[in-house]
Simulated scan of single mutants.
Amino acid sequence: MNLGIVAAFAYGILAIVGGVIGYIQARSRVSLLSGSISGLLLILAAYFQLQGQTWGAILAVLVTAVLVVFFAFRLAKTRNFMPAGLMAILGMLALAVMVNQFVALR
């Protein structure tokens, strides 16, 4: 198991937990749904990478990139570091690890 798979799995778990917290604190069904879907996609991408499917890495990079852009715009709009800033920074770190591992595998 390489570091890119771990990053995809960890960011997926973080997205799900963030969606649940958003639902609990603000009763935001959108947070729950989007966090769950994006988190599950990242966990599935990590699973398929473990199975040797290279498209799993591509899926993980795409989902993470979309989340980073979303949270960057959210941070710019709200100017609140929590949760948008934290998720954007952690997403950029996860994306850097994923891309590095993907390039190393090619």
Rank of each mutant, 00 (worst) to 15 (best):
W55A: 03
I58F: 11
M98I: 09
R29Y: 13
R79G: 04
I24V: 13
Q49R: 05
G22H: 07
W55D: 08
A84I: 03
I24R: 09
V20N: 05
R106K: 07
L41M: 12
Q25I: 05
Q49L: 04
L14Y: 10
I89V: 14
S38G: 01
M1L: 04
A57E: 11
A60S: 13
Q53T: 08
Y47W: 12
F9K: 01
S34Q: 11
V97Y: 02
Q51R: 10
I24D: 04
L44Y: 13
K77S: 11
V61L: 10
G52E: 06
S38Y: 04
I21Y: 10
R29Q: 14
L67E: 13
G4D: 04
M92W: 04
A84T: 02
G35T: 01
A76D: 06
R79C: 03
T64M: 07
A46R: 00
A26C: 00
V68L: 04
I16S: 03
L33I: 15
F48N: 12
G91A: 05
I21M: 12
S34E: 08
L59P: 07
N100M: 07
T78Y: 08
F71A: 06
V63Q: 01
Q101V: 14
P83S: 07
I16C: 09
I13F: 03
A46Q: 03
A15H: 10
L42A: 03
Y23Q: 06
G12W: 00
F73I: 08
Q25R: 12
N2Q: 02
A72M: 07
V17F: 11
T54K: 07
A88W: 00
N100R: 11
Q53K: 10
V17Y: 09
Q25H: 04
I16L: 10
R27D: 14
M92F: 08
I21K: 12
V30Y: 15
V30K: 15
F70Y: 14
S34W: 10
L95R: 03
V103F: 04
Q101N: 13
A88T: 13
T64R: 03
Q51F: 01
N100S: 14
R27A: 10
I13H: 00
V30P: 06
V69P: 04
Q51T: 08
L50M: 08
L14V: 06
Y23N: 07
F9V: 02
N2L: 00
L62E: 13
I13K: 00
F70M: 10
S28Q: 06
N100T: 14
F48L: 09
M92K: 00
G19L: 11
S38I: 01
G91V: 07
G4K: 02
A45N: 05
I37L: 12
V20L: 15
L93M: 10
I58W: 11
R29M: 14
A72T: 12
R79Q: 14
F81W: 15
S36F: 06
M92V: 08
V97R: 01
V20R: 06
Q49D: 04
L40S: 14
A15S: 15
M87K: 04
A65C: 06
F9L: 13
V17C: 08
G18A: 09
L105F: 07
L42G: 05
L3K: 13
Q49F: 00
Q101I: 12
A57Q: 13
T78H: 09
L50C: 05
L41N: 00
M98K: 03
Q49I: 01
L40Y: 08
I37E: 00
F48R: 08
V30Q: 15
Q25D: 08
V17R: 04
A57G: 15
T64S: 06
G56S: 11
L44T: 10
A10D: 01
A94E: 04
R29E: 15
V66N: 09
